[in-house]
Structures are given as C-alpha cells and as structure tokens.
Design a protein around this nucleic acid. Structure first.
Length: 229
DNA sequence: CGTTCGATGCACT
DNA sequence: GTGCATCGAACGT
C-alpha cells in the first residue's frame, strides 16, 4: 500500500473532509468494520488548549494498517459484562471515539461500531504516517522510548501519543472537529488476521487484522500465527 | 493509573 | 434479607 500523500495534499481540506466515511459504515457488524477500516485515513486536529503547548498542537494524517474487533458477546471486550460507566459509550451511537487509559501510561483509540443499543468497538493498533510526521516526532520524543521511524506509530499506545490523542477526546465524533476518518479510495492489497494481542481469553478468535508487510504493523508474537483473510 | 468486582459492614424494614 | 457505601486487590484490547 502506498502513502500517496501527493494525491490528497493537492485537495483542499474541505474536499478531503467531505470524504469522511458515513455513519452507516460504523453501524455494522464489528468484524466487518474492523476489516474495512484498513487503508482508511485518520485526520486528527488538536488544539493548544488540549494538553499540548502550541508546538505540539496541530494536524496529522495517517493511514490505518492494523485493527482489532471487540464485540458484545466477547469476553475480551469491555462491554462483555454489560454497561458500566466506562463501557457505556460502546452501547451508544456508532462513529464515536472510545478512548481508555491502560497500564497507567497508554491511551487507546477505538471507534464505536454497531447500531445504538448494541455494543462494539474497533481498536486502532497501528497507523502509517501520511502527513505531520515532524509533529508526531515532537510528541514522541518526550517519551522514554526512543523511536525508529516506524516506532512513531506502530502500536496502539505509540500512535495515540504521536497523534496527540488524550482521554479528554473520549466520546468525540468521527466527523470532527478533532477526528475525521476518510476514504480516499486506496485499498490495502492484502489483509491478514491473527489472534488479538494482550488478551488471555478468546485467543482462538482471529479478530486482529493488518496489512501484511507494512512496516508500521506492530511487532508481536501473534504475527507468526497470522493467516490471510 | 483507572476500573471493576467481591468482601465487609451498617442501616433499615 | 435487602440494599447501599466503602475498601482492597487484581488486572488490564
């Protein structure tokens, strides 16, 4: 899959943002949404007031290369025991950002799926930078982890840091003003699946999806178990 | 670090 | 017995 930054950068922002995927994209079966999100662009626009100094606010664009599906009937999902204060958003309207904080360090970015009343979400596990790499590097440099180029965004905790995503963004819409998910017509040329990372249940479910060979896909044990979709 | 759950204790009826 | 508040431990997409 190519970055094709030349393709979109010639268009105005307005034209780009018009290509946001519609609500009925998210209002579907979570596994299908997780697969279809591969190749989509994520635009994130943060303001100086949102935790960052001026130097760390701004716009990034990146392409999704790795996702995981989490369903209501799924013991690995935060929604599996019904609604709690934290998981309530997964039962609500699709097309919103579900962000949670884990291990005392990492924000995780998810998109809410399924119609209202049915819980589901897709975890964004890795993206490929398309625009704003300098800004991403600035945000990542304060981290204890020194990064290679791919280390900018090749994992769920790293990409939220690089894109400036915080818990304060939980519940925000995927039609702005912070998040936009764009279909620019580019499709991955292949898709693999594997067990999901970091869970101890439902390990027989191949609900992690990624673009094989893409350097920004996270490196983990599960890669050796992957198979084509 | 934040969330959740089970154990515990207390008020109330 | 029921229900609610509080606490601590475990664990985490």
């Amino acid at each position: 899959m190519e970055s094709s930054s030349a393709n979109w950068s010639k268009k105005s922002w307005a034209d780009l943002l018009k290509k946001s995927v519609p609500e009925d994209f998210y209002s579907r079966e979570t596994l299908q949404v997780a697969k279809d999100l591969l190749g989509k662009l994520v635009v994130v626009r943060t303001k100086p007031t949102q935790n960052w100094g001026d130097a760390r606010a701004g716009v990034t664009v990146s392409r999704i290369v790795e996702t995981e599906a989490y369903r209501a009937d799924d013991p690995a999902s935060h929604s599996c025991r019904g609604e709690t204060p934290r998981s309530a958003i997964m039962f609500g309207d699709p097309g919103k950002a579900y962000i949670y904080f884990i291990y005392g360090m990492y924000e995780m970015l998810n998109f809410v799926t399924e119609p209202r009343g049915y819980a589901g979400a897709v975890l964004i596990r890795a993206v490929e930078p398309v625009y704003g790499e300098t800004l991403m590097t600035k945000r990542r440099q304060s981290s204890a982890t020194k990064t290679s180029r791919t280390g900018l965004t090749n994992g769920p905790g790293r990409l939220t840091q690089a894109l400036g995503i915080k818990m304060a963004h939980k519940g925000e819409s995927l039609w702005g003003p912070t998040f936009y998910v764009i279909d620019d017509g580019i499709r991955p040329n292949a898709m693999d699946s594997s067990p999901r990372v970091g869970i101890r249940v439902a390990t027989d479910k191949y609900w992690r999806f990624f673009v094989p060979g893409n350097p920004y896909v996270s490196k983990c044990r599960e890669n050796s178990l992957s198979k084509p979709v």
